[in-house]
Simulated assay, not measured.
Amino acid sequence: MTDQLEPMPDDWQRALAIVAHPDDLEYGCASAVAVWTDAGRHVSYLLVTRGEAGIDTLEPAKAGPVREREQRASAAVAGVTDVEFLDHTDGVIEYGLRLREELAAAIRRHRPELVITLNYEDTWGGSYWNTPDHRAVGRAVMDAVGDAGNRWIFPDTEAEPWNGVRWIAVAGSDTPTHAVDVTDGLERGVRSLLEHRAYIEALTDEAPEAYARTLIEGFAQQQAERFGGRPAVTFRLFGR
């Protein structure tokens, strides 16, 4: 018997997704975001970098603007219009007080009930080494949620403390606990990833449309066995 995943909570209205790079949210999570925005929930994106080191054939000064445009178009497909960038240098994000303060300030400003981030463990599936940026940002998000609610930590941010985050959801975790039925969001999840066309074309010789569909539909179907046979995006959920 395969352990079944619990449905994600749905008694919330505002979420903030914080990740390192353009495309981090599109490798699966965007299908869930599309479902949430269809239900009238507000989701905002915060990108710590502009992904300028992500295209080997395009120098960072040119790649950054391209990837920002692709990210904004990608977010719009999933129903997200609120997209911010922090301008840390791609590939060399450092976990530390500066990053924690910036993320705490964003959480205080957006006042979400749900915060979403990406797998920050050392590996993907125990086999592939995770990037330093993913590890640094994910760990900083976990800590910044607590920082945001404490008026004595980073007291000089513009917004007032916010202790209203009820959950942190980690996408791409090797040990998920919850899932979202993405039957109605799967097609937009595919199209959301496809908006990162310049990135995909530099990454693979496969046709971008085939690449995006195979990945997004494949990921969702892999989890169906653990979620009542329904295509799913999974999260490891931490309550507060």
Score class of each variant (00 low, 15 high):
Asn130His: 06
Thr204Met: 05
Arg111Ile: 02
Pro208Leu: 01
Val137Arg: 01
Val145Pro: 01
Glu158Pro: 11
His178Gly: 02
Asp205Glu: 15
Leu194Gln: 14
Pro112His: 02
Gln222Pro: 10
Ala212Leu: 06
Thr177Trp: 02
Thr204Glu: 07
Arg108Gln: 02
Val141His: 01
Thr157Asp: 10
Ile168Thr: 13
Pro112Gly: 07
Gly149Glu: 04
Val141Phe: 03
Glu160Met: 11
Gly125Pro: 06
Tyr211Lys: 11
Asp184Gln: 13
Ala179Asn: 09
Trp129Ile: 15
Trp152Leu: 13
Ala210Cys: 09
Asp174Tyr: 04
Thr183Ser: 15
Val180His: 05
Ile168Ala: 06
Asn163His: 12
Pro161Thr: 03
Ala140Met: 01
Gly185Tyr: 02
Asp174His: 09
Ala136Arg: 00
Val141Thr: 02
Tyr128Phe: 14
Arg151Phe: 10
Leu103Phe: 01
Arg109Thr: 15
Asp122Thr: 14
Ala136Met: 00
Ala159Tyr: 00
Asn163Asp: 15
Trp167Ile: 09
Arg197Lys: 13
Asp133Pro: 00
Glu113Arg: 13
Trp152Lys: 11
Glu209Gly: 05
Thr183Asp: 04
Arg139Asp: 05
Thr183Asn: 09
Trp124Met: 08
Gly185Phe: 00
Val165Leu: 05
Asn150Thr: 15
Ser192Asn: 07
His110Phe: 10
Asn163Glu: 15
Thr214Phe: 04
Tyr128Lys: 15
Asp184Gly: 13
Ile116Tyr: 01
Pro176Gln: 07
Pro112Gln: 03
Ala202His: 07
Asn150Trp: 12
Phe154Gln: 02
Ala210Ile: 15
Ile200Phe: 01
Glu209Val: 15
Arg197Met: 01
Tyr120Phe: 15
His110Trp: 06
Ala105Asp: 08
Glu209Pro: 04
Pro176Leu: 11
Ser173His: 08
Tyr199His: 13
Phe154Met: 06
Thr157Met: 08
Asn119Gly: 11
Leu203Pro: 05
His196Tyr: 03
Gly164Asp: 03
Asp143Asn: 12
Asp143Leu: 14
Gly149Arg: 07
Arg135Gln: 11
Leu215Arg: 11
Thr183Gly: 10
Asp143Met: 13
Thr177Glu: 01
Ile216Trp: 02
Arg191Trp: 05
Thr175Lys: 09
Asp205Leu: 10
Leu193Gln: 07
Thr175Tyr: 08
Thr123Val: 06
Trp167Ala: 12
Ile216Asn: 10
Pro208Asn: 08
Arg139Ala: 07
Thr177Ala: 03
Ala159Gln: 06
Gln222Thr: 14
Arg213Ile: 09
Tyr199Phe: 13
Asn150Lys: 12
Ala171Asn: 09
Arg111Met: 07
Tyr211Arg: 13
Val145Ala: 10
Leu193Thr: 07
Ala202Lys: 08
Asp181Pro: 05
Ala179Gly: 15
Pro112Phe: 02
Ala144Trp: 00
Arg151Val: 14
Phe219Asp: 13
His110Asp: 14
Val182Gln: 01
Ala179Asp: 02
